[in-house]
Write a protein that binds this DNA or RNA. Structure first.
Length: 424
RNA sequence: AGAGAGAUGGCAGAGUGGUCGAUUGCGUCGGUCUUGAAAACCGAAGACUGUAACAGGUCCAGGGGUUCGAAUCCCUUUCUCUCUGCCA
């Protein structure tokens, strides 16, 4: 959430930023929010003044009662009656104004960082880095949805039987490969200074709001109605919300956490022919890195996180490219995002396997996440996160890129984890 | 799930209708003393909002109510603890 005073003081910058996202009616909306905000403050001041008067009167009534001046006290009581009516009226008015303001305010996405290019969608993303050449497979090469059947390692039909489409069952070496990847990612993160967290995978409304999934993405999360809990779409939600309503000492920044969790996404309306096999699922595994950072360091940290994720892909010997998302393709809460895409040679497609973002203060404002500097002053912290990595597409590209006539070769770095070097 | 008790500042813990934003202890920070430290003593210190700055306002788990006035009384939600039941 953008702070209203930022909106007030940097109106043009905000409008310009939202235009980069091709956010419809940016200018009108921001101006309207500001107008309502002004109204809100006027009502607030009016109410404050009446409250001040009431407080004074109440105090004096107490004083009079104590001194036994009952009649005068009764007289004073009568004068409060008018004030009370006014207070009620103003409170209702203020509440309405606040609600209107909130509804509009909460719909404003984050302002992109200055380096982010304007753009409508995926076609406008900048390619920051890409391989000089792409792997080529023989004509007989199979996409992963055929390979998993051939070697009987991932079973979609069984998943459909017990849950539904998009809930695969991993079997034998398929399950072991998953487990190996998870352990590998967690070990690497630990080496890089991240602290491992195992969070709950159901979260409440407050948490959903804190990281910005609610109200923006309500409907994309599974919801356990009886208990009003959401299944997490990413570990970002519980791990970042660990720091909701927290004031961190400046010297403790940055805070680096990593967590492995299953992730659940309804993916309502986003299904199609191009999302076969492991390309899009309702449930998948992901290791997520999360940092709470000092505002002056957050972009440096974003670069570090991006490099870290690239390092993982290099260790897995997967061809990848790095994109900087344009305004229109970024998530609602992000100020700048790098996407890492792996080339899956049998599908001849780039698959997004990681998204690393700096949210600046957008989440922290919602979370009330602050840090205290040496002068004991509180400031809003910056939050960042990134997938490191999302499993299914990594599995898909390992299967496809490493296939041979004798079987699928396991990347060298993973063999100590899988304890086998080929799937056959 | 049932019965009871409770939720107050970083923590512990007072406060049961009127200068209470809140006694006190611990912890924290500053000072005196000391070569330095400890101890002792003195002092400071919540968050949010608002203003050019003051002022003012809000906050004692969340929401609602009673009252001129609520941390304090009533209703409600959530959570915690104890006992009973059930269960990985």
């Amino acid at each position: 959430m953008l702070l209203l005073n930022v909106l007030r003081e940097q109106t043009d910058k905000v409008i310009e930023g939202l235009k980069k996202r091709h956010f419809p009616n940016a200018e009108i909306l921001v101006k309207e929010v500001l107008a309502i905000d002004l109204r809100r403050r006027e009502s607030q001041v009016e109410l404050d003044n009446i409250n001040a008067e009431m407080n004074k009167l109440s105090k004096s009534i107490g004083e009079l009662m104590k001194n036994g001046k009952k009649e005068e006290a009764e007289k004073a009581k009568k004068t409060t009656l008018d004030l009370k009516i006014k207070t009620k009226e103003l409170e209702i008015k203020l509440k309405n104004t606040e609600e209107t303001l909130y509804e509009m305010h909460v719909k404003l996405p984050n302002v992109p960082f200055e380096d982010v290019k304007a753009g409508k969608g995926a076609e406008d993303n900048e390619i920051i880095k890409e391989p000089t050449s792409l792997p080529e497979l023989p004509e007989s090469a199979l996409p992963h949805w055929d390979l998993i059947k051939q070697y009987d390692i991932i079973d979609f039909d069984l998943g459909i039987k017990i849950a539904g489409a998009g809930f695969p069952v991993y079997k034998g070496k398929g399950a072991k490969l998953q487990r190996a990847l998870i352990n590998f990612f967690l070990d690497e993160a630990e080496k890089a200074g991240y602290k491992e967290i195992q969070p709950p995978i159901l979260i409440n409304k407050e948490s959903g709001f804190g990281t910005g999934q609610l109200p923006d993405k309500d409907g994309q999360m599974y919801f356990a109605n009886e208990d009003e809990l959401y299944l997490i779409p990413t570990a970002e939600v519980p791990i970042t919300n660990l720091y909701r309503d927290v004031i961190i000492e400046e010297k403790d920044l940055p805070i680096k956490n990593v967590g492995y969790t299953p992730c659940f996404r309804r993916e309502a309306g986003s299904w199609g022919a191009h999302v076969r096999g492991l390309n899009r699922l309702h449930q998948f595994d992901k290791v997520e890195i999360v940092q709470i950072a000092h505002p002056s360091k957050s972009y440096q940290i974003l670069e570090e996180m991006s490099k870290y994720v690239q390092g993982l892909l290099e260790k897995l010997e997967l061809p990848y490219r790095v994109l900087r998302l344009c305004g229109g393709d970024m998530g609602f809460t992000s100020a700048m995002t790098y996407d890492m895409e792996v080339y899956s040679a049998a599908q001849k497609r780039w698959l997004e396997v990681s998204s690393v973002s700096n949210f600046e203060t957008f989440q922290a404002n919602r979370l009330q996440l602050r840090y205290r500097d040496a002068d004991k002053k509180n400031h809003t912290a910056h939050t960042l996160n990134g997938s490191a990595l999302a499993l299914p597409r990594i599995v898909a590209s390992i299967l496809e890129n490493n296939q041979t006539n004798e079987g699928i070769n396991i990347p060298k770095i993973l063999i100590p984890y899988t304890k086998f070097d080929v799937i056959n």
